[in-house]
């Protein structure tokens, strides 16, 4: 299979990458990309293959992160236990929610997941005696070098893609897709749709929660606004999915790369290029523009949602033929 070979080559490349690129800044960016590959892949399994669009990735991400952080904060055990437990706790949070929302049709699940993220954020803010509220949770990072984090993130990302491939090759994957395509038809041939939607949700929650726990270990600091953020986590997860390609195995991986790069370009104002330019020209307008661009990534995301949905409804990977045809015509 051609796609297999490409994936394997990409994996080998990613293993070798930090040995070539030694700059901590780029290693940090790559760790973020790999985290988003994990989250996006989990989201895609639920939304792209099972057809249940979740606006609540932040709920599971935050729960995973807080699990790791609070284990270390309250019990004094290593935050790495969170990596094992974060996903499990996220599943436990997702379970009652899915049990309420899945038997209902229509917009209930999408809205419910949006509400779940908000409930979690409010809870983490209000329950100060347990979560430290807005002060956040601070832990000491274990490693000074970025390499261990990089390889753990890579293992997680590769593992999540592998999970999706295994699921799709099995009976489970066919059940998921049948639910997406036609729920009534799936039910009429005896598929327990609620049960399989729950399994899909659990996988999504587990992968996202584990990514959250790794984030806590890596960054060393979380607060409710960072890990339960609607725009920076939940919407970002959706963007990673739709930019790369909903319902494709490798789409989220491509999407994660593009989205993190885009976010960074805006955050650093074109990697400092704009700043250099404004210094060279010396105009007040350019300085103002630079300042604004560094805050504009949400605007760019919004425009990106609009453009991608209209032009590439199946994402870069899903609409690859369309994209490559465009390139051919241009050259």
């Amino acid at each position: 299979m051609k796609s297999n070979r490409v994936a394997l080559a990409a994996l080998l490349g990613l293993i070798a990458l930090p040995l070539v690129v030694r700059e901590p800044y780029f290693q940090h960016l790559m760790i973020m990309v790999l985290l988003w590959v994990t989250i996006g892949t989990g989201w895609n399994l639920l939304a792209g293959y099972t057809g249940q669009v979740s606006f609540g990735a932040a709920a599971f991400f935050g729960v995973g992160a807080y699990t790791a952080g609070l284990l270390s904060f309250h019990l004094g055990v290593s935050a790495w236990w969170g990596l094992a437990l974060g996903g499990v706790v996220a599943v436990l949070v997702g379970f009652p929610f899915g049990w309420i929302a899945f038997p209902l049709r229509g917009a209930y699940f999408a809205l419910g997941s949006l509400a779940l993220g908000e409930v979690m954020r409010q809870l983490a803010t209000i329950w100060e005696s347990f979560t430290q509220g807005m002060m956040g949770v601070l832990i000491m990072p274990t490693f000074l070098s970025k390499l261990p984090y990089y390889y753990i993130a890579l293992a997680l990302a590769a593992g999540s893609v592998l999970v999706v491939r295994l699921v799709l090759g099995s009976r489970l994957g066919y059940y998921f897709i049948s639910i997406r395509e036609d729920q009534d038809a799936a039910m009429s041939i005896g598929i327990n749709t609620t049960k399989y939607k729950m399994i899909s949700l659990s996988l999504h929650a587990f992968l996202t929660g584990t990514a959250g726990a790794l984030y806590m270990n890596y960054m060393g600091f979380i607060d409710p606004h960072v890990v339960f953020s609607l725009h920076d986590i939940s919407i970002m997860a959706i963007l990673v999915g739709i930019v790369g390609g909903v319902g494709t195995v490798y789409g989220p991986a491509v999407g994660a790369f593009i989205m993190v790069a885009l976010q960074e370009v805006f955050r650093s104002a074109g990697f400092g290029a704009l700043e250099a330019l404004s210094k060279a020209i010396g105009g007040g307008f350019m300085a103002g523009l630079t300042k604004y661009v560094s805050q504009a990534h949400v605007l760019a995301f919004g425009i990106l949602v609009v453009v991608v949905i209209m032009v590439l409804p199946n994402g870069l990977v899903g609409d690859w033929r369309k994209v490559s045809r465009l390139f051919k015509r241009a050259s």
């Binding site: 917009a107 739709i242 949400v298 990106l304 949602v305 949905i309």
Partner: peptide, 11 residues
């Protein structure tokens, strides 16, 4: 379409 309204809201 719902995703689109999210995008419009962000913009």
């Amino acid at each position: 379409q719902v995703l689109m309204t999210v995008g419009v809201g962000m913009v």
